[in-house]
């Protein structure tokens, strides 16, 4: 599979998740259990992504490097209710500065 095919396939599937909401009878997904799981799904996926993007090395091994600084700065700023772009730029700056200082 080429990267372009992967991109297009993912786009088609995401569109599928959107259009299906306009086509199915509502009763199918109205269940309390299903709605709880679907509400928690983004939390689990994003938390998992944060974990591997922060601590994952090239071979999947766990490493501690400049990205931890980005995570810490991001969490601090979000706690202070900072804007999304501010958080992202500060995260980049934190990682870059730690690396510049030779600490990872």
């Amino acid at each position: 599979m080429s990267l372009t095919v992967a991109v297009l396939l993912a786009c088609v599937l995401c569109f599928g998740t959107k259009i299906i909401g306009y086509l199915v009878p509502g009763s199918i997904v109205d269940g309390e259990r299903v709605s709880r799981i679907t509400t928690l799904l983004p939390v689990a996926l994003l938390a998992g992504l944060i974990a591997v993007q922060t601590f994952g090395g090239d071979e999947g091994e766990l490493v501690l490097d400049a990205r931890v600084a980005a995570l810490a700065v991001a969490a601090l700023l979000l706690w202070r209710r900072a804007n999304f772009l501010v958080v992202v730029i500060a995260g980049a700056a934190a990682a870059a500065l730690v690396r510049l200082a030779g600490l990872g």
Binding site: A44, A47, I89
Partner: peptide, 30 residues
């Protein structure tokens, strides 16, 4: 530090979803 930017972006995306205890437990387990 663009790898740090990615970490920060995901953190910002999950943050507003962590209001309930169940959500926080889910994140910790994940």
């Amino acid at each position: 530090g663009l790898d740090g930017a990615a970490v920060a972006a995901f953190t910002a995306l999950v943050w507003p979803r962590l209001a309930s205890t169940t959500a926080r437990l889910t994140a910790a387990l994940a």
